[in-house]
């Protein structure tokens, strides 16, 4: 138990220390990866722990992104309330999706979430006069600050990303160890039995999905403020598959898997671009290899081979 906590704190300490030694390019990359890892952590709460394979998480991410971006640009909100708005919007859209989609399961759940996300993407295009459609808009640099922290400069941005990541990670750890966390895993393992044990599967799954949406919304909101751009491409299907890929690679149902997956996948694509221009092949092959040879991902593989304490 304490080993697990020590490991998480060590990862956070390492990330804190990393900012002093990383060259500038990787410095910003890690900041991006931490925010994307929060998105993937949210995905993992639904997919990895609760067994809900969604193909529509881009909707939650983009809702957070747009709620924050439009809040700042249209209504002139300061960054702090806009970020909170993004977080809540992500949770709210997840709740609305969940109430309907959770009436289904398995393959139908995937397709329903996919369809909702597609409708969301088209909605962004439809309200082009506010959202600037596919082209998107820039969040003015002056608005991208939290009190004295100018989030458009490197050190505060890294710091903000790290704080968000740390909060997400520790909350994830606490969730997994809570009664609710165990109920979520029970849903994944055997929904019927957990029903007989007195759980309400719909309620547990909906709660998990809303938490997942809060994570995705927070990540989208932070991505907008930290990197300054809001656009419809973030609502497209690729951004629903991205967190799935990260989670599968790092290890579904592990707290650190999403971060590990985001880190490895980011650099796999980045480094492969020096060798080949076939990024799509790299992504596709990664998915196939994972699903064929390591369906539990890297940390899942480690957990099966001795490190049973990995949360």
């Amino acid at each position: 138990m304490t080993r697990a906590i020590a490991l998480h704190l060590a990862v956070l300490a390492l990330l804190f220390a990393a900012q002093f030694i990383l060259p500038p390019y990787h410095h910003t990359n890690i900041a991006r990866i931490m925010v994307l890892a929060v998105f993937a952590m949210g995905y993992n709460i639904a997919f990895g722990y609760t067994g809900l394979l969604s193909l529509g998480h881009a909707l939650f991410f983009a809702t957070g992104l747009y709620a924050t971006g439009l809040g700042i640009e249209l209504w002139g909100l300061p960054a702090a309330p806009a970020l909170v708005l993004g977080l809540l919007a992500g949770g709210a859209i997840a709740a609305a999706t969940g109430v309907l989609a959770l009436r289904t399961g398995g393959v139908s759940f995937m397709i329903v979430t996919l369809m909702f996300a597609q409708a969301g993407y088209l909605t962004i295009l439809y309200f082009g006069s506010y959202t600037r459609g596919d082209e998107g808009f820039v969040i003015a640099r002056a608005a991208r600050s939290l009190g004295p922290l100018d989030l458009s400069s490197d050190t505060p941005r890294y710091f903000a990303a790290l704080i968000l990541f740390a909060l997400g990670l520790l909350a994830n750890l606490a969730l997994v160890r809570s009664r609710l966390g165990r109920a979520m895993v029970a849903m994944r393992e055997n929904e019927e039995r957990s029903r007989m044990l007195g759980y309400n599967p719909f309620k547990v799954k909906l709660t998990a999905l809303v938490i997942s949406g809060l994570y995705a919304g927070a990540a989208g909101a932070a991505y907008g403020v930290l990197f300054g751009y809001v656009g419809a491409s973030f609502a497209a299907i690729q951004y629903s598959i991205m967190p799935l890929l990260y989670v599968l690679l790092g290890g579904a149902g592990t707290t650190l898997g999403p971060f590990l997956g985001a880190l490895l996948m980011f650099y796999l694509i980045d480094l492969s671009s020096g060798v080949t221009t076939a990024h799509l092949f790299v992504v596709g092959a990664a998915l196939l290899v994972l699903v064929l040879f390591a369906p539990k991902g890297i940390l899942g593989w480690l957990r099966d081979r001795g490190a049973k304490w990995l949360p």
């Binding site: 390019y25 808009f137 820039v138 400069s153 491409s233």
Partner: peptide
């Protein structure tokens, strides 16, 4: 800019790429 050490960057065509990248170029 940061890794390859380029002095300037040019070339994008599609508007959403331009708008998505310009903030970072400014920073």
């Amino acid at each position: 800019a940061s890794q390859a050490g380029c002095d300037a960057i040019f070339g994008p065509l599609f508007s959403h790429v331009v708008i998505g990248s310009a903030p970072r170029a400014g920073e």
